[in-house]
């Protein structure tokens, strides 16, 4: 069993319009010192998943089922109070927008001190020293002075560093970063990604990075999970997903993205249509209305939900096409087009 093991996680929200199946049977694992990247389009259920692991849906309208094992402990059945005591200490989170995610009326220092003192019985002075220390470690210049600044007095990059300092203040073993760099400029994004990579090595924590940017995933991840409509459609090592992808949706993502590291193509290869509604998920394979190969799998595409099946050594794909068919398509039709880029 992995350090974090998620099994058949379902998170559904009853709403006036119907049941929103934001996460529908997701399974994955992460080891300490390893990074899992979760990619998917807006609304595919990435944030709901991460909040679910942290137990932040408890007490809300959400219906959770499945199992979340963290270091041998099951969290979905655990008491709210117990999950709370793990939050911040054993598992922590970095959010997308560092400005709105920090309280505007407390100094950065106060917020880190608070995070530290929830789980450590120490005096304010000790916690403050720790906060200065953490700010220094995430690369904030003059930490002893900046500890008394308010979030609005920091630049975007510094705020995200402060968020990271806060999340790491109790030395968590699992760190979830939900779009940690989406709100930042590229040059600052590069700094933050470097920082996260270095800190992960230093703290040896398990890291989950959630993003819609394939570039960001490629920079950090050991394993990658591609989500579509609340389900995992492809899961494997970074090499599997980037060099031997087998799901038509993953191909679509790769083809949609202009790249700087290759000669530009004449045209991008977009995925037609738009992401599915999570209330009326298309029957059968949820991707079939947008899939160029839907015909190849005949009626099955619209009637039967394909299983997430192993194709080779831990590489999982959810598609009715046979392994050979998918590999043939990738080698002969998709890859050549992408690589002439």
């Amino acid at each position: 069993m992995s350090f974090l093991d998620v099994k058949d996680l379902k998170i559904h929200f009853p709403t006036d319009d119907g049941l929103v199946k934001s996460v529908d049977g997701l399974s994955f694992g992460v080891e300490r010192g390893k990074t899992l990247g979760i990619v998917g389009e807006s609304g595919s259920g990435k944030s709901v998943t991460s909040l679910g692991i942290l137990g932040l849906h408890k007490g809300g309208r959400a219906r959770l089922s499945g199992e979340i094992w963290l270091d041998g402990e099951e969290l979905i059945g655990a008491s709210t109070e117990h999950v709370r005591s793990l939050r911040g200490k054993k598992m922590a989170m970095i959010f997308q927008d560092p400005l709105s995610s920090m309280h505007p009326y407390y100094t950065v220092g106060q917020q880190i001190i608070e995070a530290y003192r929830i789980h450590n019985d120490v005096s304010k002075q000790v916690a403050r020293k720790h906060a200065v220390d953490m700010l220094g470690r995430v690369g904030i210049p003059e930490p002893a002075r900046r500890v008394d600044s308010y979030p609005h007095e920091f630049s975007g990059g510094m705020r995200q560093r402060a968020m990271i300092a806060m999340a790491l203040s109790c030395d968590p073993e699992l760190l979830i970063a939900d779009e940690p760099t989406t709100a930042l400029d590229v040059t600052v994004q590069a700094q933050i990604l470097d920082l996260m990579r270095d800190l992960q090595r230093e703290f040896n924590s398990a890291l989950i990075i959630i993003t819609h940017d394939l570039g960001v995933v490629a920079e950090l991840s050991d394993d990658i999970l591609v989500m579509y409509g609340g389900k995992c459609v492809e899961y494997g090592s970074a090499e599997d997903v980037f060099y031997r992808p087998e799901h038509p949706y993953t191909w679509g993502l790769l083809g949609s993205m202009p790249r700087l590291d290759r000669e530009p193509t004449e045209r991008l290869l977009p995925i037609k249509g738009s992401p599915p509604s999570l209330i009326n998920v298309p029957p059968g394979c949820a991707f079939h209305p947008r899939c160029p190969y839907a015909e190849r799998t005949g009626d099955k595409a619209t009637t039967e939900v394909p299983a997430l099946a192993e194709t080779e050594g831990g590489h999982l794909v959810r598609c009715h096409m046979s392994r050979e068919e998918r590999r043939g398509l990738w080698e002969n039709e998709i890859k050549p087009v992408l690589e002439t880029q």
Partner: peptide, 20 residues
């Protein structure tokens, strides 16, 4: 700009700017 190629990240010669 992050490159969507897991191999590249290891041997890329990067320029990192300081500050904002």
């Amino acid at each position: 700009v992050p490159v969507p190629d897991p191999k590249v990240r290891k041997d890329r010669d990067r320029i990192r700017l300081k500050g904002d």
